[in-house]
Design a binder for these strands. Structure first.
Lengths: 250, 250
DNA sequence: AAAAAATCAATCAAATTCAATCAATTAAAA
DNA sequence: TTTTAATTGATTGAATTTGATTGATTTTTT
């Protein structure tokens, strides 16, 4: 009996009985205990069931798709708040640079301004931007598979053809001494370039990013206004001494 | 027994049994294990089934989405044939330009060459290319909403940073006098530029495109090899007098 | 709480299945 | 016809799957 067939039987038995003993699986499939154990741990890893001592149990998951999507971004609610506020800063006729990343992605549904033009290096942003009928330019460059961002020489070169009224940048770390940082030097260079090409620069950083620093330096704090949901007054005062900080309250 | 016959039997058995052992295929077709293995890997690549250890399983994927997507393009079968042939022209280490459009999109699943680099202006191509772990560069520029292609000054500028071993271009019209044409002058300019930056240029044109001409001229016939599924000898001879023509047979 | 029973994860060797290669055959092209 | 290309089946060693066994862990019984 082939693996998918066994898996089908296992899941079907579970549908019928909620909780099933190991030995019942062995009988139903006519194969060894070991094999069933291996199947169960595999199916558990795939979130298809839950192992319990002596067998396995059905796992009543709520809408899988939604939860997976939502869990795919941490602090989604905070990011939405930050995004909403950042979007409100965009004015009619602005030329905007939108950095790749989940935080800036949250801005798009809240953009109200008319006659704007957006330039981005985030491939994930395209769909949402076109949905809103916003004229969108993409920078060129190498596609980084992990983040779906455009990076490299081509991206920098392509970016330098433009200049912006405002840019919105996502970062991984904000630190009082090291400034804004991100893990990938290639991405850091892009973010840096975008900031330099903009009249006004905004960095979007939820509270989990503050007092963190990662490998590649983007810019010192004073080069961009920080938008955050941090609430610790003491922490905020420290950053406010160095740069403009906009605080979003839930 | 001929290959399509075997494939038909394999898929039919799968329809009946969901999961089928390799040996059952061997019995049903009366041919060797090796042949069945080859068939299975081919059919898997075509997303017709899923191989599992010991045989194959029907894939109960979101068939709807796939088929809607596939049927959304006219002459899909012909385009696949053309795409398959075009993909076979790519050699290890090549730098390739892949034009936006449904015909060139069909090439991607069939690309076998290693260590290649692809540059494209088609946003729809990205997913398929990354799926195959092919290093992909995107040209910059304005996103044309209707076709999801990158166009404009930025695209041209970005394209000119590269040079290619081969380029594969989709067109809307092929005409004995007007050459290769497409409706949008912006897109025509990009295609033209790509052809000029390539050592070898290939135009992919299914039979519905021959003897058609649309608004914007891309290039005269002799500037690119035409790959087509046209079968009319007389018509072909006419084009062969002007340029190299590769004919794909079903 | 201690002993017994059941279940578990980890490991192993045997069996099966796999991908890669090669020579033979067949089909197609020159 | 001769040559070339494509397809096939057999063979190889490598990789995967399997059931059995081990001692550890958990649960149940005493």
């Amino acid at each position: 009996m082939l693996t998918p067939e066994r898996h089908r039987i296992i899941l079907q038995l579970l549908q019928e009985k909620e909780v099933v003993k190991l030995h019942e699986f062995v009988e139903a499939t006519q194969c060894s205990e070991s094999t069933i154990r291996r199947d169960l741990s595999q199916l558990e890893k795939e979130k298809k069931l839950k192992r319990v001592h002596g067998g396995a149990a059905l796992l009543q998951q709520k809408r899988e798709e939604l939860s997976v999507f939502e869990k795919s971004t941490k602090n989604i609610h905070e990011k939405q708040l930050i995004g909403k506020y950042a979007a409100s800063l965009i004015q009619d006729g602005d030329c905007i640079y939108l950095d790749a990343g989940t935080t800036t992605l949250q801005m798009i549904p809240y953009i109200e301004a008319k006659n704007i033009v957006v330039v981005t290096n985030g491939i994930m942003h395209i769909e949402a931007l076109l949905e809103k009928d916003i004229p969108t330019y993409l920078v060129g460059g190498l596609i980084k598979k992990k983040t779906n961002a455009l990076i490299g020489r081509g991206a920098i070169h392509s970016l330098q053809q433009y200049s912006f009224d405002k840019c919105f940048i996502g970062v991984n770390g904000v630190h009082i001494d090291f400034g804004y940082t991100t893990p990938d030097p290639e991405e850091a260079l892009i973010k840096q370039t975008a900031i330099h090409l903009s009249q006004q620069a905004f960095v979007l950083a939820d509270h989990s990013k503050l007092n963190e620093s990662t490998f590649a330096k983007i810019a010192p704090l004073q080069e961009a206004t920080m938008i955050t949901d941090e609430t610790d007054e003491e922490l905020l005062a420290m950053y406010e001494a160095k740069t403009t900080v906009e605080v979003v309250k839930s």
